[in-house]
Nucleic acid binder design. Structure first.
Lengths: 342, 342
DNA sequence: ATGTGTCATGTTTACGTAAACATGCCGCTC
DNA sequence: GAGCGGCATGTTTACGTAAACATGACACAT
């Protein structure tokens, strides 16, 4: 590495409004007005200020602005570090929606979603400069009293439950699981085996419950579900042990479905000839799995948009509304499902 | 939704040091010392302050702190919204490494990586409260004069080139591409076909150059590469048109390899019997593709760690070192590669 | 006993901004 | 032509914190 030690990079502190004001021959307040786009400034004066800004390379100091206004124009996102595909997509959507509204995203990753870790994260977050927070945590419920959100800080919960204390935006997991299960039943399968996500996950619990309810409504026998951890590996392990009588599997996400299919391939079983498989998420890769995976499509972009919309509403209108917004899911039928072997 | 309109949620502005100080019967400066963990405070006094903080639910105001100290304890990340797998993993690693160092991440997504968009993003970022920035952009080079990073703001570039103006941390793309290509040649393939990423990508260019150099060094014929855009779909399209004489393919990422394999399956070609395929990234799913994909493993976690390490060094020691750090890549041989059909 | 050093604590100030209030000019109305 | 209102601009102040400096008490050495 070349050590360059720029000659005494004197405090990288940009010019202030006062300096711009002096150069332009106006008061700092006038500079403030120009910076904030207020209209009651003479055109000639404005131009002079703009020129001075340009010349000095003026940039507003967001810390000072935030201190004065109490607004940070930033949204905190609490999420687990080792994120699933869905979480990443949701984050992407949130970031995009926020940027369009003029807010930036402050990430607060937490390593392990234990109560302790979460409490620490929430505390740190409340010290951070955010106007509201979005929580994407694989928690069964956030009603736990250990978790104290800073009172008065707008929050939106994704991918979890929150009693009715907070705004919740989520995909319609139940509908998705029902569509998947019913699709397999409609194809003529006697029943459907389920590969669930981790027990700590609320989303997983909802999918499992809906799968069971659908089977029961159809009078189909219910085998106990296998429990994975969202990873390809867990799906693979479950696939290796899949009971012989199973002809249809509904996996709670695409990765586990993929791992499961690999195991089936290795066991010499054909898909969908011997076993039909349905996933959940519709990740970009699912269309190219072999065979292309029938799965439940989640509209992550819409989830992100609606979350930010709800959050901004709460932030900017100082209201506190609670309630759950469901984003529809849909079934994408590809080639991993078919009629059972006669 | 239930409208709850909490009775005049009066300014969600927490108690200040002054209020804590009053309750504890000390000066606000003493509260500041306790808040910052300075040692020169009497134990009894400290306890009294801590009790007062607890009682009032005091949280430091980060805007005021930042204004005073000039430090934000935040790192800005500029990246394209529709991110590739690698970018997401890198972001995850950066976020984790930053969190451990006590820094949070401020995301600055930009929709389209045009010069204009990037300039806007940089400007916005320089107004944001960050101590340094990490840039993960699919740009061929950042030496373009249109792009002006705020002078004096520490920066680290990933996944691109930067002349020698900035610190660069990246995987050893050339080595990875060489390993992949040589592996196929060693298996006995006469030459290797290449599916490249978009031309605007510097990473892609490096992989392509290294692929070509490896072939030339081995005296193998060089066919013009196909150009994809990182997506599964582009790999699929290229796979449908793959020339018949090709027996070995090196794809510049796993997604395109996956799409290509799907096309080969549909064309009734066997992998690796008829065509061997190597990818790049070693995404979590690659092990469960069918067949499991031989690919170049990238240590995204290490890239994230080193980037943050370099950036923090620059931030906290006010030095300006430039140079490139290479993170090794390695080949993971699975079942998508084999000897060519005799 | 006086001086000196250490340590806990208090007082003053400035960081850069924007709200609130103040000023002064110009044009218009009656 | 006197008064009034609108408008551009300036002055004062406060946001919450931490650095710099000041104070005062106590311990210990001479």
């Amino acid at each position: 590495m070349t050590t360059d030690t720029t000659p005494a990079t004197r405090s990288r502190r940009g010019p202030s409004m006062a300096e711009v004001a002096q150069l332009a021959g106006v008061s700092s307040q006038t500079v403030s007005r120009v910076a904030n786009g207020l209209t009651n400034v003479d055109a000639a004066t404005r131009d002079r200020v703009l020129v001075a800004m340009e010349e000095l390379g003026y940039r507003p100091n967001s810390a000072a602005r935030a201190l004065k206004t109490g607004r940070f124009h930033s949204i905190g996102v609490i999420m687990t570090t080792l994120s699933t595909y869905g979480n990443m997509r949701t984050l992407d959507a949130i970031a995009t929606a926020s940027a369009q509204a003029g807010y930036s995203i402050t990430l607060m990753p937490i390593a392990v979603p234990t109560q302790g870790e979460m409490a620490v994260a929430f505390t740190r977050l409340s010290e951070q400069a955010v106007d509201g927070i979005a929580i994407i945590i694989e928690a069964h419920t956030l009603d736990n009293s250990d978790i104290i959100l800073p009172p008065g800080l707008p929050a939106v919960i994704l991918d979890s439950d929150a009693g009715d204390r907070y705004t919740v935006v989520d995909a319609d997991q139940a509908e998705g699981a029902r569509l998947a299960t019913q699709h397999l039943l409609d194809l003529g399968h006697r029943t459907v085996f389920h590969v669930a996500g981790p027990e700590s996950s609320f989303s997983s619990a909802r999918r499992t419950a809906s799968w069971r309810a659908t089977l029961e409504a159809a009078g189909a026998p219910v085998l106990p579900q296998a429990v994975g951890d969202w990873t390809v590996e867990s799906g693979y392990r479950i696939g290796l042990d899949l009971p012989h009588e199973v002809t249809a599997v509904f996996a709670a996400n695409d990765q586990m479905a993929l791992g499961l299919m690999r195991a089936l391939h290795e066991r010499g079983l054909s898909i969908p000839g011997d076993v039909s498989v349905v996933g959940f998420d519709d990740m970009a890769e699912a269309q190219a799995f072999w065979p292309p995976l029938t799965t439940v499509h989640q509209d992550f972009a819409e989830i992100g948009r609606r979350s930010i919309q709800a959050l901004l509403h709460e932030i900017e209108d100082s209201t506190h509304e609670t309630g759950t917004t469901m984003v529809p899911t849909s079934l994408v039928v590809r080639e991993s499902t078919g009629v059972p072997r006669a």
